[in-house]
Amino acid sequence: MGHTLLTRHEGRSIGSSSIRILGVAMLLAAFSGSSRADQFVIANLSVTFSGDEVREVYLGEKQFAGEQKLVPVDNTAIQGLFLSRVLRMTPSRYETAWIKKSFREGLAIPSVRSSNSETLEFVRHTPGAVGYVVADKPPAGVVVVTKF
């Protein structure tokens, strides 16, 4: 019977071991999850342009890829991340830039999608569409322009 009983010291030791194991497992899960998710700039299969041109596309400086009219769309799910990493702008500056562009040149402000799946579907089905998404792996059925 005495073998089934643990001393106070042993109980504390096993309890803390369990917490450590659980902590390590959670950390592994967290890291493995974040390492799988990447941010991709994607385009419809009708479009080819380089990653260096993404900024110009999203500021209305580049409107065509060859003969194809480009249709950039914003994805609110990761718009802040995209603007800071790729365009190096705050959302308010981005909005102001497009108001000026629209007012000066009559350009259409990029429409907005509210999720990764919505953005992906729009880009897949719209000739000239350009978008950005978070995904575990490069999305299929679109051109992956660059990662950011």
Binding site: S102, S117, E118, E121, F122
Partner: peptide, 21 residues
């Protein structure tokens, strides 16, 4: 997938008519 299909068939924000600014 169902939501995406529904969303893909509706106009995007900004595509609904001619915006007046």
């Amino acid at each position: 997938k169902q939501v995406a299909q529904m969303e893909a068939t509706r106009p995007a924000r900004g595509d609904e008519g001619l915006p007046l600014h």
